[in-house]
Amino acid sequence: MIKAIFFDNDGILVDTEILYFRANKEIFSKLGVELNEETYAENFLKKSKGVWHIAEKMGFNKDEIIELRNKRNNIYSGLLKTDLKIIEGAEEVLKYFHGKVKMGIVTSSRREHFELIHGQTGFRKYFDFEITSDECTETKPSPLPYLTALEKSGFKKEECIIIEDSERGLKAAIAAGIKCYVIPTELTKNSDFTGAEKILADIKYLREEIDL
Results as ranks from 00 to 15, higher is better:
Y96C: 07
G104E: 01
L80R: 01
K95T: 13
G78I: 01
A90T: 07
G89H: 06
D83V: 06
E64C: 11
K62R: 15
K102D: 02
K95Q: 14
E91Y: 04
D83E: 11
F97Y: 02
L94M: 09
Y96L: 07
L94Q: 01
G78Y: 04
V101G: 03
T107K: 06
L79M: 01
K71Q: 06
L68Y: 04
V101W: 01
I66A: 13
G78Q: 01
H98G: 06
T107S: 14
I75G: 07
K95Y: 09
K100A: 04
I75P: 02
R69E: 15
E92P: 11
K62E: 15
T82I: 08
G89W: 09
I75C: 02
K85C: 05
V106N: 05
L94C: 07
N61A: 08
A90E: 06
K62N: 14
V93S: 10
E64N: 05
M103N: 00
E88P: 14
L80N: 07
V106P: 11
I105W: 07
F97T: 02
F97L: 00
S77T: 11
K100E: 02
S77A: 14
L80Y: 01
N73P: 11
N61Y: 11
A90N: 03
L80I: 04
S77H: 13
D83C: 10
G78L: 04
V93D: 02
G78R: 06
E92G: 13
K100Y: 00
I66S: 14
N74T: 14
N73L: 15
L94E: 01
K71G: 06
N74F: 12
K71R: 14
K62T: 15
T107V: 05
K85H: 08
I105F: 00
F97P: 04
K95D: 12
I65Q: 12
L94S: 01
L94I: 00
R72V: 13
L84H: 03
R69C: 14
T107P: 08
N73A: 10
K71H: 11
Y76R: 09
K71V: 12
L94F: 00
L84D: 00
G99F: 05
K102M: 00
V106R: 05
N74L: 13
N73D: 15
E92T: 12
K102N: 06
I105V: 09
G78C: 02
G89T: 07
K85L: 10
G99E: 02
M103K: 00
E64F: 09
D63C: 12
R69D: 15
L68S: 06
I105H: 05
L80S: 04
K95E: 14
E88Y: 12
N74Y: 13
N70G: 14
I87H: 08
T107F: 01
I105D: 05
Y76S: 07
G99T: 02
N74G: 13
L68T: 09
K81E: 10
A90Y: 04
S77D: 10
K95V: 12
G104L: 01
L68I: 11
I87G: 05
E91P: 12
